[in-house]
Design a protein around this nucleic acid. Structure first.
Lengths: 342, 342
DNA sequence: AATGACGTTGAAAAGGTTTTCAAAAAAAGA
DNA sequence: TCTTTTTTTGAAAACCTTTTCAACGTCATT
């Protein structure tokens, strides 16, 4: 049976109030008693019951994290940033996988409510009306992570994906590519699908490459789908010399498909990814990609939650963290490509 | 302000006991009252406070997970299995990254105690004396995940790594390889380092290939280290025709290093990995590897925890889940290798 | 009509902590 | 030495549930 504050009090021969004070306001207790209490705590290996404290303070120090799927390394990086910040600020992270399934999400939203979570970190999913209403009803503060809402006033931390996509495609164009394809998240996804598509189109238009606008195929999240999408893309447009893939996993799907078709990357086709997963520099060739500061996104999200919890609201509502184009081996300028090499 | 059971009672015009009964033993309440209570619950969006319930039942429904680093996709898979099982059994997972640093581990062990976690899932690290003692002192049940202890009687779920390594190396030998190297976790790691090394050596001895026993280099966890280790290995033994890498990440380091040295995989050197991460079939070439059932390991671990919580102890103490050799493209039989191809 | 059995209900205690308030002890002042 | 002020202390209430126990009302049996 776990020792309680009563056990400590009895052993130190003081009241429980005194024990509580020793832990929360040590100066208000005389030295000798404090000493006795400390010894008792030590020898009983006493730890105050967080449930009981939570009941009083109406704070559980628990933060709920709703994430599509922890198996995606992208989320692993974010979670790590969150957890390090959480440790520092005294929170604990409860992780839930949603697969972006509405029923799961609603169910977890209620779970958090029951568990008295102090706040919700909602990662990488579009905030539907129903979600928002449930969040409101539950009353805990929310931080949107790697997603954003313009319908609702929810604090968020993410990268400007439109700009990032624009930069990636612009880079390809600068390198002399005139026939650029896109392997895109499906457009119903307004956060990562639509925005990256927008950036792609804007870069095209800025450079009078309107003809590329139809060089697009869609996939949802997975390598296999990107592989299949690439297959469709090159069936239709075999003359493409570059592909912008909306994630590093997509990029690997692209490269894998191209490899199977006997097309060399980057000699014949350049590929740019998105995310800069650890894995992106383990591949052959190493991926040129848009780096997102995943760790920092997670860290900032927890800080932002802390701001809300401490001051009632976040200092900045929608926060944009910088991205960065990282050039590695999967891209080549048109004018440097080996000619007719077989 | 969150509604409490009192608010519900007031609205339904009954006592709080009745409300409680409606939730925990509905049949014991007359239909009309039950109806009124249910309506009140609904309209207030009332959820019972888990902190208060936890205080009474001495159960928080919280499980602590101590994991080296969630960024490692291997752990992502395990966590997902855990979380799905947790959802089904009514638990919530609190995740903590240890980096295998003793101070962090001890600190988290105490945190769990404070948070009243119902149990600890200790993932993939050696159980040191000090850890065990702290666990005992805290008094929560423990399940070892992808690790095991022979000093202490702690339930565990994992794969037989010695046998798995034996199988991987035996396969290489069957394929006609006579000069096989090993990129191994450092030996101070008794769980994944020593055992896989043992399996390697046993396969060698069984086949009279003792001369290979010195074809070993060590690395700790990361791609870069595996890359460097491979470099050292081939500096010393350029005649190797196969390498067994102790993880898929290692295997990618091996392949990357070999690639940079102009050595083709699998044409000139075969490589076998370990784990079967999702990533292992996204690479070029796709990895031949020992598959661990990560998802199942996580799932079983939570079930095992549940057994302990419900029945006082786990049905089976040390549980071994099956591994499987998956042959893909990174290995080739000696007699099929393209000769003198340049 | 009276008794007993049973089902339904509410008051109160318990769970482990913090905090308010009043009492006791110590220190300061006269 | 006796008051007054200040510091230190403990009892009790509060946080939100569940559960025991006793009381009440209903119904059936005699």
């Amino acid at each position: 049976m776990k020792p309680t504050i009563r056990d400590v009090a009895r052993m130190a021969n003081v009241s429980i109030s005194t024990v509580s004070r020793v832990m929360n306001a040590p100066e208000s207790v005389t030295k000798d008693k404090r000493q006795r209490v400390l010894e008792a705590i030590e020898s009983l290996n006493y730890h105050p019951n967080a449930l009981a404290r939570g009941l009083i303070f109406k704070k559980s120090q628990l933060l709920g994290v709703l994430i599509p799927d922890i198996r995606n390394p992208y989320f692993g990086e974010i979670i790590r940033g969150m957890e390090d910040a959480a440790k520092q600020l005294g929170y604990n992270l409860m992780i839930y996988n949603t697969d972006r399934v509405p029923e799961r999400i609603i169910s977890y939203l209620d779970t958090l409510n029951k568990q008295q979570a102090d706040g919700l970190l909602f990662v990488s999913d579009y905030v539907q009306r129903q979600y928002y209403e449930t969040m409101q009803a539950c009353g805990y503060p929310v931080v949107l992570v790697s997603t954003v809402s313009f319908e609702y006033e929810l604090p968020s931390v993410k990268v400007d994906e439109e700009a990032a996509a624009f930069e990636a495609v612009s880079y390809l164009i600068e390198q002399g590519h005139q026939h650029i394809g896109l392997i895109c998240f499906t457009l119903p996804d307004p956060i990562s699908g639509q925005t990256r598509h927008d950036g792609f189109v804007r870069a095209l238009e800025r450079n009078n490459l309107h003809h590329c606008a139809s060089y697009v195929e869609f996939a949802t999240h997975w390598f296999e789908e990107a592989y299949a999408a690439t297959s469709r893309l090159f069936d239709r447009y075999p003359h493409l010399t570059a592909v912008f893939a909306c994630s590093d996993e997509f990029a690997m799907g692209v490269i894998s498909c191209l490899h199977d078709r006997g097309i060399r990357v980057p000699d014949q086709v350049s590929v740019v990814g998105f995310d800069n997963l650890r894995m992106s520099w383990m591949t052959i060739p190493k991926l040129t990609t848009i780096a997102q500061p995943m760790y920092a996104i997670g860290w900032r999200a927890v800080e932002k939650m802390h701001e809300q919890l401490e001051f009632g609201e976040a200092a900045v509502l929608r926060e944009w963290l910088p991205h960065e184009l990282i050039v590695r081996e999967s891209t080549l300028p048109m004018f440097h490509r080996p000619q007719h090499r077989e």
